[in-house]
Design a protein around this nucleic acid. Structure first.
Length: 959
RNA sequence: GCGGGAGUCGCCCAGCCUGGUCAAAGGCGUAGGGCUUAGGACCCUAUCUCUUAGGAGUUCGUGGGUUCAAAUCCCACCUCCCGCACCA
């Protein structure tokens, strides 16, 4: 029967909704508080977003069935800048974004018109995403939903940020950002044309003295100051004379402009032509030597200061320019000065001689200073010298230091001695703001930071991480690493939606800082949504009392106008649900959100309310490649649900990869899942809860196998190894089941409906967290009157494992395999098959060997000696071959089976095979099978095969 | 550079944590068969090499090591992927 996924899904969603199954309030039961990072609503959800939420939902549903009172809430993160950029683009009638909204996201035209207002974008996608989550069957308590611009939430954030400030964890300082000089705003990727992230580097400005001016040159290699032999000036450039914080500088026009944004006072005093500087001398800082300024065409006014210091021994550009000038026609006086210039080698690098620049220029076959190959030559020299070079004797106190290490030391030293300054510059120019203006680097000197560099704070966070469960384990070291390098982080910005800093209303709390302890807010949002809590009178004292137990009710009651009862009810809600038992998120949030989540918790909350667990998952690929707008391979989640059904999508996402791996999603796997579910569904429709009586061997076996499955699946889910769990339920178990059916069919049994009903009830119950809708439908077909999602998780009972049933069934399977094997190799068509089981003496020895092997003794010689030493088994010396093979047999079995055999009593192979082999043997091979023990008197053994019999490995004779 | 992850039988991908069930699951592909008017879908069988008795040989990036035993543990190396911030 074809399944109508959407119909079934809405049927059960309505049922869950009507019975308010997922609305969770404090109760007597033990709680689990499971949360996922809330979405930023600037686009519809796609399959990729679905992964994290689906994993968390399975987690929540599993614990609900395990008997916990599970709270699984959701909210929407409106705070942030991307929607601002979008609104701007919509307002500017940007064709690209409007096309995308219309075609890719399916937003109706009327809605797009409203998108000039950022909140409208968030509102629209909020609704869209929420609907998708409902359609996916997520078991969310929607009564607690909120957005991060709700007034009460703002009060909450104000309290959070104020609390952090009081603990002196928020500091003020300066910080460089990408900046639009027209909008007077910081710019990030979302604010630029072409979505480029402004990328900048820090140049060191070396200050050369020229008369009463300073000529700064920009370099990334301050150590080369010891190797400077001249300066390069472009004769075509007209330079600016400017005053920079009371010093007189000569720099290019572009450089002067950049300096204006770098927290310096600039005034313009005049101009000077590059040409006029040629041949003049400057003084090298610290070295106090006089060097000459020479013309070079490779010097650009837009890079650095428009002046370059020349280190011809280590910089291919400088070396080549010097060669060029030697060949060109210049005044004789200048030429004689040029002739005297010799490169100064200051770095020793393995593989290079005294002039690495020269070597590289020659190696790459550079023609002149405008040759693009110079870039490659430079890269090679810089790379090798930086990581492999050491400073030579002529670098004074820095001699012997590795370049990579010396760089920062020398920079500090130069700046300290006022020989140098800093220039920040964009590296991926031009970066244009969406308003069209070209962006610059600006140093903000009144920026607010969360001081994540604070040692005590890091220590607390480390403690929390150490005590916390992190799934999967592999990711733990990454957290430790992040904690290690974390420094101050800007926690406020000047535009976007969000909460204003309570003490500095120019700033808005940055979106990665207002989303770190909001899980606590879920415990009070219920009271906001039912009208109990209003923003107006909510003071920090209220939050102090609810979250930290500080102050007293009557005082809070006076301040807020709420009754003590209400306040205490809210407090009870928080005390019951906190701490967070599990926090789910994608791995991209490890170096930021998840780490901040822990840092902020340990800063604000007492240890008993620190989070207990973090679960991290990888991303989703589409047919092996990254999902991206340009590839056109983004599948909107809601569309996928419509086309394939929520459950197949959920399963396809989960089955495609283990937690941390990237999940490769493809439509073939979805239809594979659909087929699988369909056949399981059809099977469930046929089965009735018939009374089970007189268990036969295979019944005991399959019921035991079912128990093992329960145990394995439960353990897997507890470790969030959902792929494994699902695979066990859906696929691995299938091979057991098909063996069972084979056995049953061979016997022509018709009385197994009850057993299959029992087994499939277990399977469906365990499937229910993964595929909640179709499981309910199957559950109903199986005749259960309750809901699968609120039923009890199947309980593993060791008692129901029948060890001898497992052993004997294994024996039977192996025997059938062996017979097939022989038939395959010999290509005989069998007329008669005879089986010989081992006699009791061999069983006794088998057991002794089993004991020895289990206790770790696998050496044939020693085992043999011990056996001979025991009079009961001394006769073994007649069949040494048997011992050898038995050890091998045992070693080729799983340890559980060995254990099982060791613990169980001997079982009568002959009797079992006589009963069970005949039917299946006849069915498989079409002939009768006789069974003897090798010690039987009336044995039929024309080819003397019987003596090869071993326990669990009967001898076979085929004619 | 720093940090993390990966390399498995034509392809994708499990197994590795906890060594022996491993010539190694599953899917795709391929070959044969069934079903069908045919195609598709579906089902069965085979798919490292050799083998006329249930066996043997060579495999899990490369090279070493530990062990009775290594895809699995340890060391070194090679290759590939990801993150490195004020952005959600």
């Amino acid at each position: 029967m074809e399944i109508r996924w959407n119909e079934i899904e809405s049927k059960w969603r309505k049922r869950w909704n009507d019975s308010k199954d997922f609305e969770t309030d404090p109760s007597e039961k033990e709680k689990k508080f499971i949360t996922v990072a809330y979405p930023y609503p600037n686009s519809p959800q796609h399959i990729g977003h679905g992964r994290t939420y689906t994993l968390a939902d399975v987690h929540a549903r599993f614990y609900r069935m395990k008997g916990f009172n599970v709270l699984f809430p959701m909210a929407f993160h409106y705070t942030g800048t991307p929607i601002l950029g979008m609104a701007k683009r919509v307002e500017a009638n940007d064709k690209e974004i409007i096309e995308n909204l219309k075609n890719l996201y399916g937003v109706p035209e009327e809605s797009i018109k409203t998108f000039v207002e950022p909140v409208k974008i968030a509102d629209y996608f909020h609704k869209e995403i929420k609907t998708g989550m409902i359609e996916m069957g997520y078991s969310i308590d929607w009564r607690r939903e909120f957005t991060t611009i709700d007034p009460v939430y703002s009060k909450f954030i104000e309290w959070q940020i104020k609390t952090l400030k009081e603990k002196k964890l928020i500091i003020q300082g300066s910080h460089p950002v990408g900046w639009c000089p027209k909008d007077l705003n910081p710019v990030s990727q979302h604010d630029t044309l072409g979505d480029v992230e402004p990328d900048f580097t820090e140049y060191i400005l070396i200050k050369f003295k020229y008369e009463n001016y300073i000529i700064p040159t920009a370099t990334l290699r301050p150590e080369t100051i010891f190797g400077v032999v001249n300066l390069w000036v472009n004769p075509e450039i007209v330079y600016k004379k400017i005053t920079v914080d009371n010093e007189k500088w000569i720099v290019s026009k572009e450089c002067a402009y950049k300096l204006e944004f770098l927290d310096k006072k600039i005034t313009y005093d005049g101009e000077i032509k590059g040409r006029e500087l040629i041949g003049k001398s400057v003084n090298v800082p610290h070295r106090n030597e006089s060097i000459i300024m020479l013309p070079a065409s490779f010097v650009e006014s837009g890079t650095g200061t428009g002046m370059v210091m020349s280190v011809p021994a280590h910089a291919p550009f400088d070396y080549q320019a010097l060669e060029d000038i030697k060949k060109s026609k210049i005044e004789p006086e200048l030429a004689s000065k040029v002739a005297k210039i010799t490169p100064i080698s200051i770095i020793q690098t393995e593989g290079f001689g005294d002039n690495p620049a020269k070597e590289a220029v020659e190696k790459f076959g550079v023609v002149n200073q405008s040759d693009p190959k110079l870039e490659d030559a430079t890269k090679e020299v810089y790379g090798k010298e930086f990581y492999g070079g050491k400073l030579k004797q002529n670098t004074e106190q820095f001699a012997g230091i590795k370049v990579a290490y010396a760089k920062d030391t020398i920079k500090e030293w130069l700046i300290k001695n006022k020989h140098a300054d800093i220039l920040l510059e964009l590296t991926n120019t031009p970066v244009r703001c969406r308003c069209g203006a070209e962006c610059v680097v600006k140093v903000l000197n009144n920026q607010w930071f969360l001081n994540y560099g604070n040692k005590d704070w890091k220590e607390l966070a480390t403690k929390c991480f150490d005590e916390m469960n992190i799934l999967p384990q592999e990711i733990r070291s990454e957290f430790n690493y992040v904690i290690g390098w974390l420094r101050e982080r800007a926690c406020a910005r000047q535009h976007g939606l969000g909460t204003k800093l309570p003490w500095d209303k120019d700033w808005i709390v940055e979106s990665l800082s207002d989303s770190v302890i909001y899980m606590a807010y879920y415990t009070i949002s219920k009271f906001v949504n039912d009208g109990t809590l209003k923003a107006k009178k909510l003071a920090p004292e209220f939050f102090d009392y609810i979250f930290l137990g500080k102050g007293d009710v009557s005082n809070v009651s006076t301040i807020t106008g709420l009754t003590s009862d209400v306040i205490n009810q809210i407090k009870k809600e928080f005390d019951y649900f906190y701490p967070v038992d599990s926090r789910h998120s994608g791995r991209d949030l490890v170096p930021n959100h998840l780490t901040f989540f822990v840092l902020n918790h340990v800063a604000i909350f007492p240890e008993n309310n620190w989070p207990k667990e973090i679960v991290v998952n990888g991303s989703v690929l589409m047919n092996g490649s990254k999902m991206s707008k340009s590839m056109g391979n983004i599948i909107p989640l809601r569309k996928a649900i419509q086309d394939y059904g929520a459950d197949p999508i959920r399963l396809a996402i989960i089955i495609s990869a283990e937690l941390l791996q990237d999940a490769d999603f493809n439509m073939e796997s979805v239809s594979g899942i659909q087929n699988k579910l369909e056949s399981l569904f059809n099977e469930c429709s046929r089965l009735k809860a018939v009374k089970i009586e007189n268990l036969e061997a295979e019944d005991k076996w399959i019921l035991s196998k079912t128990q093992s499955m329960i145990s394995q699946v439960t353990i897997s889910i507890e470790k969030m190894r959902l792929r494994e769990a699902l695979h066990d339920i859906l696929f691995s178990f299938e091979s057991d089941l098909s063996w069972y059916i084979k056995r049953v069919n061979a016997k022509n049994r018709t009385n197994i409906s009850g057993i299959l009903h029992q087994i499939n009830s277990v399977r469906v119950a365990m499937l229910s967290p993964f595929a909640p809708h179709i499981s309910e439908e199957m559950w109903e077909k199986l005749g259960h009157s309750d809901l699968a999602s609120t039923s009890q998780w199947p309980e593993y009972s060791a008692d129901s494992i029948n060890a001898s049933a497992i052993q004997s069934e294994e024996l039977l399977k192996l025997l059938i395999d062996d017979i097939s094997n022989i038939l395959k190799v010999t290509k005989i068509t069998p007329k008669k098959i005879t089986i010989y089981t081992a006699d009791s003496f061999k069983s006794k020895i088998y057991h002794s060997i089993l004991e020895k092997v289990t206790s770790g003794e696998t050496n044939m010689g020693i085992v043999m000696k011990e056996l001979i030493a025991n009079p009961e088994t001394a006769d073994v010396k007649k069949i040494p071959d048997f011992v050898q093979k038995t050890i091998k047999d045992i070693l080729s079995e799983p340890t559980e089976i060995r254990q099982m055999k060791l613990e169980s009593n001997e079982f009568d192979e002959k009797k079992f095979l006589e009963n069970e082999l005949t039917d299946i043997g006849k069915k498989e091979f079409g002939v009768d099978i006789d069974v003897f023990s090798e010690s039987d008197d009336n044995i039929y053994d024309p080819k003397a095969k019987a003596r090869h019999a071993r326990p669990f490995k009967p001898a076979i004779f085929i004619e």
